[in-house]
Design a protein around this nucleic acid. Structure first.
Lengths: 340, 340
DNA sequence: TTTAGCACTCGCGGTTTCAGAGTGCTAACA
DNA sequence: TGTTAGCACTCTGAAACCGCGAGTGCTAAA
């Protein structure tokens, strides 16, 4: 285990490095207020810390830099709860105080404030409401052979899908179809739509002509098409502000990852409840292994709705970022709970 | 005016520089197939060309590089129609051959193929269909004081807006309202919606209670809210592949511009009919002054629907890009004409 | 008018140099 | 025994320097 003094030294190194991005020498540490021993002593401690893997040298003889293990230790044991400034709280406050009735806007603004506040890249997933039920379905024919189905869920989410219609199908038939669907599907949880469609509705429809069947096939495809989960990002260019990313190749690979939204979405979706920190190599995606990703979840009652995350250099202001994510995820949860 | 030989030299310089991004010397030019005079002669011609402003030196004594004036001359006078390879045509072909009934998909795929084919960044605006009329309007109440209005246009475009409802309003009233709206507004061109709303509909509604009026106020706001024009981009990271953008600052300012979608949209919307090339400083946006932007429009009948564009370094493969944009804008126009 | 020749210029990559920052070790000290 | 001062050593990064190669402009000959 680390001694009290080693921890103290480690703490200074990390705190300092987070702000300066420069290796820290024993001299600099000794000058710190709450350090009361000489550089030589500190050098000894640093040698130990290095041997234990918490810090590293960039070359044979320059100051020390936190290793990923060091950050991990910091996050797990050393990090103090950060008290957000009034200004920061004010910015978050203002994001939520304007009356908004669309969750898209809320989430977008959250992403914005998150990246503005931290100068990192913010990523928000969701919300995915699983308890949602179908409130209404409507089909509007557009041309002889195409139509659009509009679904409204109990949460007020509106979605539409285009699909083909057999040319033999009449407008009247379409109306009948809509009636049947509304009859059978309204109130059904979205997640069970598929099952219901295959079961009752299919059966019901089979009593009619083959036209219905063909339409049904198209419609089914449209309705069950996996709805892409929305990913909201902001502050993508912030990464370039970080000195460790003054390298085109790194930036490029990172940007490529950010363009693969489904991959990112998956990553965020599988991040467990609460706040989670992934440091450097701990990240699954290779392109992110110079970064840290901090995720937090927001929820409706007990049900997890989505994830908010920040992507930045491993040299992140962990404690501040965690506080901000905490506040924001709570705000988001509240907002959604007040709606539904 | 330029002599035949000067033009020949200029052509070689530009062609070569477009592919190598390296300054060209008199030696290199002399080695070209269709050049039959010595380096010394070429040096004289180059001195003239430089004096006239068509080419530049990067420093006192290195090869020449095309100036923006040079590119402009090339684009206006020298550029030969480029014959696209079968492979290129094939890629475009394949983009359109899969049956698609959503224009979003078509446009997205177009953006993709455009950036894949060129290795530049593609930007597509639209489509904005002005002749569209309202096909149907529906209002679904979500909670005591919120509702969502769903609009379907004659082109099959679906849009929804959330708005507040006075708590005194009853469901039955809402239905009445919808009926009135459908009665009065269906078939009205979208651009005239506002006018109609203020006129007939307002009058009609005033005969009812004050509740209607309040709802009307909210609804009006929601319906007339300026619909954001969609901008589709692809290949944003391609810029980093260009050697002249191996500079973080340039990249950052360019990316910042790309995040300001409304600014970009405006730029594209005001680009006149047909193909237009903006080289370097000719661009309005400061951050783009190291780039060239080539725009083309696509249309429905006579009506311009939107713009497709490519953003790349001033050292662009103008002739190829112009051909590609030509083909693609035609394809897009055809697609939309076949639908509506 | 074109071309060969030549002196000159400049950027680029590699090497050298030097100061500064930092270390590890040793020996003295409390 | 833990702490500290001192010192030799290492390494980086910036600046200075050097020589090569590519390219030019000019002059004079073809």
């Amino acid at each position: 285990m680390l001694t009290e003094r080693q921890i103290q030294v480690l703490q200074v190194i990390i705190d300092e490095f987070i702000h300066t991005a420069q290796p820290i020498g024993s001299r600099a540490i000794a000058k710190k207020e709450d350090i009361s021993f000489s550089p030589a002593t500190i050098r000894n401690e640093m040698a130990d810390l290095e041997e234990l893997g918490f810090i590293e040298k960039t070359h044979t003889s320059s100051g020390r830099v936190p290793s990923e293990k060091g950050y991990r230790f910091y996050v797990d044991n050393l990090m103090l709860p950060f008290r957000l400034s009034n200004q920061d709280m004010g910015m978050i406050q203002r994001t939520f105080e304007r009356e908004m009735i669309e969750f898209e806007k809320v989430v977008q603004k959250s992403a914005r404030v998150l990246s503005d506040l931290t100068n990192y890249t913010s990523i928000i997933l969701g919300p995915e409401v699983f308890e949602t039920t179908l409130k209404q379905i409507q089909i509007i024919s557009l041309s002889e052979h195409t139509a659009v189905a509009i679904l409204v869920t109990s949460t007020g989410h509106v979605e539409h899908r285009y699909f083909n219609v057999p040319t033999t199908m009449q407008t009247a038939d379409l109306e009948k179809l809509v009636n049947i669907l509304n009859d059978r599907l309204v109130g059904v949880p979205i997640v069970h739509l598929q099952q219901k469609m295959y079961g009752e509705v299919a059966e019901m429809l089979q009593r009619y002509s083959s036209d219905f069947e063909a339409t049904y096939a198209y419609l089914k495809e449209a309705l069950l098409e996996k709805q892409p989960v929305k990913l909201y990002m902001d502050g993508k260019t912030n990464i370039m502000l970080q000195p460790e990313f003054h390298d085109i190749d790194k930036i490029q690979s990172l940007y490529s990852v950010m363009e693969k939204e489904d991959q990112l979405a998956n990553l965020l979706r599988t991040s467990g409840k609460g706040i989670k920190v992934s440091i450097g190599q701990e990240n699954e995606l290779a392109a992110m292994q110079d970064c840290s990703l901090i995720t937090a979840t927001y929820s409706l009652g007990d049900e997890q709705l989505g994830t908010i995350a920040l992507l930045g250099p491993t040299r992140m202001e962990y404690s501040r970022v965690v506080s901000i994510l905490n506040v924001l995820s709570n705000r988001l949860s509240h907002k959604f709970n007040s709606w539904y």
